[in-house]
C-alpha cells in the first residue's frame, strides 16, 4: 500500500504543524481567553489572546488536546491571527479557515478544523476580568490529560 492517499488530508505542512505547533502553551499576560470542545471526539481547545490598546492581536496561543486536524489547524490559526485587528479576526470566516488549512476535509472532519476557529471567535468576547479567566475554568491538559466531557452533546 502506498502512502499517496493519506497525503490528501495529512499533508506535510499539516503534520509539521501537528508535530511542532506554533504557540502551543499558556500565554502569561493574556487579555482574552476561551475554551471549547467537540464532545463527539473529546477534542478541546483553549485560545488565549493578548489584544493591545489599538485593538490588535499581539499574541495568540492555544492549549488543549485533540486529533491531528484540530491541533494542526489551531497552530495555523494562531499564526494567522497575530497582527490582525479585532475587526479583522471577527471578519475571518469559517471558509477562510478551511482555506488556510488547505488539505481537503470531509464534512465531519471540518468540525475538527473549525474547533479552534470557533473558540477564537468566542475568545474575542471573553475578556479576562480582574485576573479571573472566565473561559478557562477547567484544567487544560497536555498529551495525557483525561477527557473533558462537554455539555454540548
Amino acid at each position: 500500500m502506498s502512502s499517496r492517499k493519506e497525503e490528501e488530508i495529512y499533508q506535510e505542512h499539516v503534520l509539521d504543524h501537528f508535530e511542532d505547533p506554533y504557540h502551543r502553551g499558556e500565554l502569561e499576560h493574556r487579555t482574552h481567553v476561551h475554551q471549547g470542545d467537540n464532545p463527539l471526539c473529546g477534542d478541546q481547545i483553549c485560545v488565549q489572546l493578548k489584544i493591545d490598546a489599538d485593538q490588535r492581536v499581539q499574541e495568540a496561543w492555544f492549549t488543549g488536546d485533540g486529533c491531528c486536524i484540530s491541533l494542526a489547524s489551531a497552530s495555523m490559526l494562531m499564526q494567522a491571527l497575530e497582527g490582525k485587528t479585532v475587526d479583522e479576526v471577527r471578519a475571518f470566516t469559517a471558509e477562510e479557515m478551511l482555506e488556510l488549512y488547505q488539505a481537503r476535509l470531509t464534512p465531519n472532519r471540518q468540525k475538527c478544523c473549525l474547533l479552534s476557529w470557533r473558540v477564537s471567535q468566542a475568545a474575542l468576547f471573553s475578556p479576562v476580568q480582574d485576573g479571573v479567566d472566565s473561559g478557562n475554568r477547567e484544567p487544560v491538559g497536555g498529551e495525557q490529560s483525561g477527557p473533558h466531557l462537554g455539555e454540548e452533546s
Binding site: 493519506e6 488530508i9 495529512y10 471526539c41 477534542d43 485533540g66 486529533c67 491531528c68 486536524i69 472532519r109 475538527c112
Partner: peptide
C-alpha cells in the same frame, strides 16, 4: 495518534 486520525487513514 488520535482515534479519529486512525479511522481516517
Amino acid at each position: 495518534i488520535h482515534a479519529h486520525d486512525v479511522a481516517q487513514i
